[in-house]
Design a protein around this nucleic acid. Structure first.
Lengths: 110, 110
DNA sequence: CATATACTTGCATAGTTGCGCAATTGTTGT
DNA sequence: ACAACAATTGCGCAACTATGCAAGTATATG
């Protein structure tokens, strides 16, 4: 493999690792799940997850830094929404993986 | 939503977070990429990634603890392989997400 | 038995993350 | 200008992570 192509590959690996790191927190996953259907303000997210506002805000900033959500100011509120619906595909495949593990386990028990 | 269903959902979220955490390390992603085609021994992985053996070994143990790879002893060697090809789907969707981001950026520049 | 090879484990340490709390900024209405 | 609400920022602490290095275990070979 040529050297510059190798470098690009290393870079891509790094990017993937960062993406997965951004998703490696339960609060951030719950936020994304809430954003599946509609955009929400920070306070709305706080009410649904029942967590402290600074916590939500910080997790949102992590998601934003990783280009997973974007925000829009309207009056006194800031609306957050998901940038790329492919993210939900990631979450859904993750679920599939657990379901497969579980059904393997059930087979083993039989 | 009923309470026990809510609890299950929290649990699933936690599991997802752990899965993504397991994938949030470049070395582990590179290992999985190497295991796409064939099972490999620890030394073979070491040679391909050009990293220290203890490092590889530790990352493999993380992957194993998360049920992402399994191992099989044969003589003096230990062969590792990927448990669920859906993992590669995760990696591929991640790549798609970056490609989409990149093409958005290119559009913006025009 | 001794030695080489293949791998794992333990440990030290530097760096990172999560999260609660207090303080701050920004916006709207009185 | 002031109060009220929305959201962010900074700080500190406990917990966790990555990684290099040394030591240990297990298996095959002379």
């Amino acid at each position: 493999m040529p050297k510059n192509q190798l470098k690009q590959r290393v870079k891509l690996t790094q990017l993937k690792a960062e993406l997965f790191r951004a998703l490696s927190n339960p609060v951030r996953i719950r936020i994304l799940d809430e954003l599946r259907i509609e955009e929400l303000t920070v306070s709305e997210i706080k009410d649904r997850l029942e967590l402290e506002l600074p916590n939500i805000s910080q997790q949102l900033s992590v998601l934003k830094a990783n280009n997973l959500v974007c925000s829009r100011k309207q009056g006194v509120n800031i609306y957050y929404s998901c940038v790329d619906t492919r993210l939900f595909k990631l979450l859904d495949v993750a679920k599939e993986i657990f379901q497969a593990q579980l059904s393997d386990l059930q087979k083993t028990l039989k």
